[in-house]
Design a binder for these strands. Structure first.
Lengths: 220, 220, 220, 220
DNA sequence: CATGAATGAGTATTCATTCAT
DNA sequence: CATGAATGAATACTCATTCAT
């Protein structure tokens, strides 16, 4: 409960939503992530949000518009501001080694990443079925994140701390591993027992082996 | 069309299905993968399969049973026999270096992996929503694949060709990267332009950097 | 038409039903009594009630709930208030002889009994198939009617006008004969020609012979 | 199980039925009486009878024809032969007093009456909805039973043992009470505790009070 | 703004019945 | 004779959406 409250609050802090609107968004995020978009009915959302069915459609003309009202801002705000700001901030801290940056991204902010997992889950579920979403997502990534990430990677490459591979490949590799791990950890098999500290350490090590220069390679 | 025909034929070659059954399965695989399980109606399946709606329910008592009739055999047959046999066969061929094995797994059999992508997509979509599926999946992996994979990894480790990391971590890392790449390539953004040969090479190189011993590391 | 209108109006006078609700109940009473509960489809009810099928389910979550919404209130209101009040009123009128009471119950109120015959028919049809209904029915009878009826019977017994048989047996005997007659008359063979005045007279005479004291016995 | 076997065997002893046919009829009687005709599906019957669905329709062209195949013979054979023969037999035994005859009808043959209760239940359930059935039923009663019953009643009336009421009224009164009692006892509330010996005694006494002459009246 | 009754197309599933084997 | 796969209309019920209040 608390959890979805927080998501909506964080995501829509700037918009001034009515109480009803917040309740609707909260309920929608919860149900979409728990049962999937198609398997969630607007009446369920209304019931959980404690509003009349009509109220939903006063604010969002269709069910799909409600989905986009959740996923859109998330992609924009999060992808754009959160992570990018993060990266900028992290950059300022002048992490000497890329593994420190990775570690900071994963470890220091694990709770924030985890916080938004329901939204990530929704996006991953729906991306394949909504071409506009996919377009939007791609554009956001290429417009905002790509340059920043490439910048950071270039920086490290010039310091000789990353292999001279194409930055795109490095980025994709790092992201795949981080998201893949989080997905396995929190979406696929959240009920398994995990040793998060050790797993993250190992993950970073493996990623760095992959993209780091020999100097920074860590043998076990 | 051709494509889903092939999937069903390959997957259910042993079962002797009636023509109608094959049509139903074919249509279901296509629609489930294209629109998602929940967003596909049984009447759509019937129409595409060119059978009466009642016919579906003669063979599969519920829509969910139809899903399981597709996903179950896939997980069993493929996970169990296909990939395992593959690994065994590949092992016999005595791939000198693990990157050759990886390359063989990815490249030589890309078409087969690609062939079953619709099913993979269905599984990835539905796994989070069907606990029994998740259980089943987990058990199949741990029962069949785990030991084989660990065996192979041990072998290479003893030959000094893989780092002395826990085989589980190595396996998870490799699988994450392979599936992550395929997912990005074929599910998320199939419409982007990809240079498959170069991408695969790069992927293997990155994975190997991660898990391989210095000797086998390839600088770019 | 008129007839079912009246039933619903009388039965649900206290509840303030919407127009649609009244139409639905009216149609349901008509069809359930004419074709039986199981043989009546919700779409037929909707059509006859001139509402959308969904409207039925907005008010009554299931078809069975609709049945209970009809049968429940009838059993409660009628069994509880109608007949009991009747008896009380009748009692106040100080019918000297029990046959006068019987006659009043049957004859004076034949139209009311006849008015609710469709509902009686529904109850008799469905009672065997719905244990909860049976329970409910039994409880209503034992809770409300039993004591009143026993009271009346006791009264007459003390006046020496009824045999000193167990009041339960007397009650069951009288009710069986009254309902049995009405059932034969109006449900089984309504199309036969009946001489209601004579038949009722005869019925009362027979009942009274059965339970009355010799003094009040009437020879033909 | 045993029970429905017996019904079918007794009812169709003359017809030479195949094993399958007997199983179908047995299953149909059971299900029709337990759930009602409309609420019973042919596939249920087929399953319980352990025959293919098609087999039912080979013998009975429609579901309704199956109903008539059960109810028709019952009405004919039972109404015609059983009860009539009974009455004849009973008549021959020269029951001195009508209450002895009544007692014989009810008590001595209670098991047989009870044996066919499922069929009685079916008939009572379906009679209101199938006009042909009702016609058939009426005709059987008036053709076969009426004269016999009137004969017996006349006999007792001439012996001064029954009131000089119209035989029809006497017959209806007796039958109503017997059937009404059995219906209450075995169909409506079979789960209540009943003292059959005492109840029957009381019932006969009440009936006799109603129709018997003062001489044979029994005070309690 | 919010409501919730109303809608009718759509849902998964069951039905009685047919017919080729 | 018996089967059971096949049918498509029908079933009870749900859906997203509208609109008068």
């Amino acid at each position: 409960m608390e959890r979805f409250e927080l998501i909506v609050q964080t995501l829509f802090e700037s918009n001034n939503l009515t109480e009803k609107q917040r309740q609707i968004l909260k309920a929608a995020v919860q149900l979409f992530s728990e049962k999937g978009y198609a398997a969630t009915s607007t009446s369920e959302i209304a019931k959980l949000a404690q509003v009349a069915e009509g109220t939903i459609f006063r604010h969002y003309r269709t069910k799909k518009e409600l989905l986009l009202a959740i996923v859109g801002p998330f992609m924009e705000k999060i992808a754009d501001s959160y992570i990018v700001n993060d990266l900028t901030n992290l950059l300022k801290k002048d992490y000497q080694r890329p593994e420190d940056l990775l570690s900071a991204i994963i470890e220091n902010r694990r709770d924030i990443i985890v916080q938004f997992l329901p939204l990530l889950k929704i996006i991953l579920q729906e991306l394949p079925f909504h071409p506009e979403l996919r377009e939007h997502f791609l554009q956001l990534i290429s417009d905002n994140m790509y340059h920043r990430v490439v910048e950071v990677i270039n920086d490290y490459q010039q310091k000789g701390m990353l292999k001279k591979l194409p930055p795109t490949a490095i980025a994709k590799f790092a992201i795949t591993n981080i998201l893949g791990h989080l997905f396995t950890r929190y979406v696929l098999f959240p009920h398994l027992e995990w040793d998060d500290v050790r797993d993250t350490e190992q993950l970073i090590q493996l990623i760095m082996n992959g993209i780091g220069n020999s100097d920074s390679k860590v043998e076990s």
